[in-house]
Computed example of a mutant assay.
Amino acid sequence: MLLEKRLAAEYRKQLRNERISMFFRKAGMTIYEKCSWMRFGPVFLAVSLFLIFFVAFVLWLKISINVDFPFLKFTNVKQLEYMGQIGDFFGGVLNPLLSFMALIAVLFTIKMQSKELKEAKEETRIANRIQDKQTAVFERQNFESVLFRLLDVHSRLAERIRTPNKLGDGDRFKSLVDNVLDLVNENDSVLKLQHSNFDNIDSWFERKAQQERLNAEGLGKLIEAVRLVINQEHKILLSQYFRNMYQILKLIDNFKLEVYEEGSEKGKKSKRQLRMEYFQRRQYCNILRAQISDDELKVLYFNCLMHTGYGLKYYVEKYSLLKHMDQNDFLQVSWEWSAMYLKTAYADYELITDFQIKEFQKARSSSSFIHIFPHHSHQ
């Protein structure tokens, strides 16, 4: 029985000690939570103000009421003067040191703030760049969706023109080309006679002038033949075909492409940026060019010579849509028919110079003012 009572007493004592310990731990946690909102700055300021007022209060009691405090009892005035000199000495030494330390702390704070501000600006710049890239991706997706729909329409229009309503008529594009070439060859006999007389001209300038007049006359006869053939039976169908092609090229040319280059000024594009943008647009035009047959290229050549095809001719020359046309097996005439287009209409991408790309960019920029200063109608 005694052993049981002793064990019970020890258990109750241990339980009481644990409860007391738990109480103090909870009290400490409560006080810590209540005071956790306080920071070093407010606490330091409060302690400093308390010490200042406490010292001022003690000095006031000592000087005004002459109250003595333990360890602060002065027996004579000389001792006070001596302690004042010691205080002035320590104050004169410590004040510059503390001021210098405060200045160092301020400079360190400014440096840290500058670093944080620089990092914040860099993060903002990266975030803006990511957002711009995401926006560019969405815009490109929408652009390609519209582009491929127009390309599908172009394929269906070309197939409708190519497939005749009557059996035995053959490819309508080929028949149009043959009709135009027949008319041109009939009218070229007189021009060939004029060209044969060039050998009797000794002056290079006169021969060049004669060749230019011959080219102009041959171009006039070619345009007349094209007008007779294309603007007759198949005018409506071909007009729809070329208007759709014009809208495809216009969509590609007006699509906003931004090639970023580190160090470039905002609003100004370098030669490299202009070439990269031109290359990307040309890639889309290559998709359209790959769907155009040889006879379609020849009909396209004819159409852009007329007044209504000037708008489409700009894109044909800019993006080299006549690149795959066989120049040796086309017009067998005495005048220079290939000179009716710029050389870029037949050139590979590698042969396009930066100057030519810049000139096309200038022409594109000035085209927005055509409605103010009209010169001729476009496609």
Rank of each mutant, 00 (worst) to 15 (best):
V333A: 09
A225T: 06
E116V: 12
H378W: 10
I130L: 00
K62I: 12
V184Q: 10
R16V: 15
A209Q: 10
L15E: 15
N142W: 09
N254S: 01
E123R: 09
Q131H: 12
M1N: 07
E212G: 06
N328H: 10
N215E: 09
N244I: 11
Y315E: 12
L222R: 09
P70W: 09
E122T: 08
K34N: 11
K73Q: 09
E33M: 07
V259W: 00
Q361Y: 14
Y301F: 06
K208E: 11
Y314T: 11
L183P: 02
G267D: 05
L107D: 04
S196L: 06
K34Y: 12
L7Q: 06
S36M: 11
K235I: 00
S145Q: 15
I370A: 05
N231D: 13
L331W: 07
I352P: 02
L107G: 08
K118S: 08
E350L: 14
G220Q: 07
Y301N: 09
I126F: 01
V58I: 14
F57P: 10
G84F: 05
K266E: 07
L214S: 12
I110L: 11
L181S: 03
F71I: 04
E206S: 06
Q232V: 08
N200K: 09
D88S: 06
F50D: 11
K269P: 05
R156L: 13
L183H: 01
L107A: 05
R272L: 15
G263F: 09
Y284N: 10
M29K: 01
K121R: 10
L147R: 12
D354C: 08
L150T: 07
V226E: 08
Q332G: 03
S368E: 02
L219D: 14
G267M: 01
R16F: 15
Y319V: 08
S367F: 03
F355T: 14
L157C: 00
F360K: 01
A216T: 09
Q356P: 04
E33G: 13
G168P: 05
T163K: 06
Y319G: 10
V184H: 02
K313W: 14
A345N: 04
E206F: 07
N76V: 02
S264C: 09
S338E: 01
K192W: 01
A8L: 13
K174E: 08
T30H: 03
D295M: 03
P70C: 05
R12P: 08
L45S: 00
G28V: 00
F355K: 05
T124M: 06
S365H: 05
M83Q: 00
F143M: 15
D354G: 08
Q194A: 01
D294M: 10
L45W: 00
L238Y: 01
F205Y: 08
F23I: 04
